[in-house]
């Protein structure tokens, strides 16, 4: 199975502020009642975007200045909580192609990489600078460059990014969805299974 080689993501950004944003906040549990992931995009961050009476709270996602943004800029420990893949799926379906944060929760990180969404970290001060730039000049073109290991904002700003080397390589080589490789080893799988004391057929 040939997958796209993801070396860089280019697009405008939107900053969603807040530490420890958990997957319940990314996609509230009531939207998990689906048998496919299509259509999840519109419910992204639903409960912080809308009040109980249905009126908008003025969330950055609904701010026309950030319409069409494809790079999501967030804060620390993004995606903590439940392992639901609906969270990165709803982000992907909303049109985001990369996420920049100070740090990510582990399961969320893995789930996102497996969808081909680079999750890169910046040092706190750099992230703050990036967020400020996105907010003050929403039309700034951002580049998440895995090859050079930098996040750039316009022509003037750039910061070194962090990402697990394995994940970065997998994205760049088009191996981010592991199923192809896992399938290659069918015979080995059967022989290891047979060697396990509890798995013999």
């Amino acid at each position: 199975m040939a997958l796209a080689k993801i070396e860089r993501v280019v697009g405008r950004g939107v900053h969603v502020a807040g530490e420890d944003i958990d997957t319940d906040r990314i996609i509230p549990a009531r939207f998990l009642k689906c048998v496919t992931f299509d259509g999840l995009g519109e419910h992204l961050f639903k409960d912080v975007r809308f009040r109980e009476d249905g009126s908008k709270t003025g969330h950055p996602l609904d701010d026309p200045r950030f319409a069409g943004a494809s790079i999501l800029v967030v804060d620390r420990n993004f995606g903590c909580g439940s392992s639901r893949e609906h969270a990165p799926q709803s982000i992907a379906k909303r049109g985001f192609k990369a996420i920049v944060a100070e740090s990510f929760a582990e399961i969320f990180f893995g789930n996102s990489i497996a969808l081909g969404i680079p999750c890169v970290s910046l040092a706190r001060a750099d992230l703050d600078q990036l967020a400020k730039r996105v907010e003050s000049r929403p039309d700034t073109v951002l580049t998440v460059d895995l090859v050079e290991g930098v996040v750039r904002a316009g022509d003037d700003l750039g910061w070194p990014l962090g990402i697990k080397p394995g994940a970065s390589e997998a994205l760049q080589k088009g191996l981010w969805d592991p199923i192809g490789q896992l399938l290659e080893a069918k015979d080995q799988i059967r022989s290891v299974a047979a060697s396990l004391p509890y798995m013999r057929a």
């Binding site: 392992s83 893949e85 990165p88 799926q89």
Partner: peptide
């Protein structure tokens, strides 16, 4: 694990 991993 996530749903993609359930698939795996």
């Amino acid at each position: 694990i996530g749903t993609t991993q359930v698939r795996d």
